[in-house]
Design a protein around this nucleic acid. Structure first.
Lengths: 195, 195, 195, 195
DNA sequence: CGGTAAGCGAGACGGTACGTCTTGTCTTATT
DNA sequence: AATAAGACAAGACGTACCGTCTCGCTTACCG
């Protein structure tokens, strides 16, 4: 049974255009940051008309969201070493490693738009934030089942990890390097003992 | 010796104008949120010329920063009950209580601008974030001296508390009410025992 | 010998589409005037694709031109009463009568496009203006042959009649009613005497 | 008594900007005609922001109108030789002479916009057309007073002269040179006799 | 009766102009 | 010197229309 063999009439959406837009967004975000990322700029860089841009994405945030989703979907795998301490280490270090310049710029763009507009915040939360939370929650869930972690603590831990990340990213309060990753991993009770 | 008896020539700065600007900023932020808060709008609402606005504040962020500082400076006192658990409870509940609609809108404006522009982020960090961190650090420091808290844990705790706050504020990931305040307070080790 | 018995292969042009386009053009012109008459609008109203529109007409002007030709081709017959004064009266009154709201909107569209683009002006002149001029010229020619009109005056009279019409139509300088028609007819020398 | 010595507060309107806009409009109209004359283009050529353009002129037509008024106000003087025939000759030849390439482009722009939008047509009529009509009407009035021209004929003559001009200009029906000027002048009864 | 070829709808596309908005600077007269 | 009033350059925004394109489907004929 084919999943979607239907072909609607009319010229089909150009995959080239879509790809060019997402690529241009990543490039521009990396180069100029949130402030320099404009719809007109993306369109020009991508060799795409503004109308096409607005047809498929209703705002800058949506473009960034999709660009980021495409780029970083498998960057951080969900580890399963059998030990919470090790799992957290792996997860945090992978997270830290994924935060290169380009990604930080994209995330800052996401944060800026989300802070300014609750509607977009909802979208970002559901389509991006939730995925990351789920990945970490999976790791913690296993630890809870093994009795390594109190259930109540699992919940706040997710906030802790990502809260720290965004807080530092947005306000520049401290680094997001490997030292940070390890410090965060170690601070989760029950994972401190075995370094 | 008088502290500052100097009187520069010319018309002195209008205190009325300054006050009107800060009030207008608070009002507009509460009404329209980050997206609707413009320099032109503030000037108009305050009955002040844009010239005057830009003379004393170099950017929207500075205005918001000062408006916020004025409004919420003594809102959250630094508690000293002799017990980390109690101190944290008081601090977190006061923090939660201070986060009314207006304040959240202002904080979101700060976050949006900071995420978009690292220079503003620096400013926000130095003039606003740092003060809050210092207040919490003072509470934790005392606990460390009493042997209630490991020094290493004190550092990450500050990140935890404020990270959670901004994370939830920006992306709408969960509430910021009294339940949240208590959950955060309880999750700091050594303060869990006594509810 | 049949004039055009050839039948090219492939699907023949849809007469329905052609008719729908011309009708839609007339309707839209009457409703929204030159400014509101767009190719996309015509296509949509006619239930025809833009592709089809552009296949058969290369510009808005061509569509309007054909719509107008279809509608008003026999509206103004060439009178031949034997008297210049009477012929002119009939011609001018018929002209005036043909200038209902819809026709005026169409003519204004033609004028707008012609003024903006000399190439279209050429087309309009050859395919529309020339026909009207020829009709009037025929009437005047007969008068010249009868000795009622000086040959030199015949030439400028055509300019006079149609110039006045377009001038008033475009700039709203005076009416185009029966009074105007009579005034114009009467002002041609040799036709004034007999009212 | 000074006509307008009042000085409103605020930065006064820049005469430089105004002049640059009108000049740029004339240049662009001459170069590219009605179709190539855009608000953005005018702004760029004039070194003026689009906001300034729209602050003072609400549409392209208004800019063109003012540009034309400035340029051609005294181009065609009202002659008074004492003879209708001579006056008309002078007036028509001056009119013809004033119709250089640049002016024709401007007039065509005016016509295009007027045909498309009756509101602008009203404006053009009152602020531009009316002045020309008044000039010619003055000449004819004098002839009527001298008994050279029937009052009824004076009215249609104005239509005739300008109708012919615009008709030829818009649709390219014949020239607008000296031969045309003389032919039109001669065709007015009472002025034909004396060449 | 099946192949071939053009017409047709739907609708995406690059391009360009539109008119509005906000930012930060400036130039006045007034206080 | 500071103010209000407000004009200004710069440039992003989101919309509209243009004319072209690429699809799948339809309607004829012709062999």
């Amino acid at each position: 049974m084919a999943v979607e063999p239907v072909r609607r009439p009319g010229r089909p959406r150009s995959e080239d255009a879509r790809h060019a837009v997402l690529t241009a967004t990543l490039e521009l975000a990396a180069e100029s940051g949130p402030a320099g990322l404009t719809m007109g700029g993306i369109a020009e860089r991508a060799g795409v008309s503004k109308e096409t841009l607005y047809r498929w994405w209703h705002s800058k945030t949506e473009v960034v969201l999709e660009a980021l989703a495409h780029y970083g979907d498998e960057a951080i795998p969900v580890p399963d070493t059998g030990s919470l301490a090790k799992d957290l280490r792996v997860f945090m270090r992978a997270t830290s490693k994924a935060l290169d310049h380009r990604t930080r710029q994209l995330l800052r763009t996401l944060a800026a738009q989300s802070a300014a507009d609750p509607t977009f915040a909802d979208q970002v939360r559901e389509e991006f934030i939730a995925r990351r939370r789920a990945a970490l929650a999976e790791v913690l869930e296993r630890a809870v089942k093994r009795g390594e972690l109190a259930p109540a603590r699992a919940a706040v831990t997710v906030d802790f990890v990502f809260g720290s990340l965004w807080y530092r990213l947005i306000f520049g309060v401290g680094s997001l390097d490997r030292a940070w990753a390890d410090a965060v991993a170690d601070s989760v009770p029950g994972s401190t003992a075995e370094p």
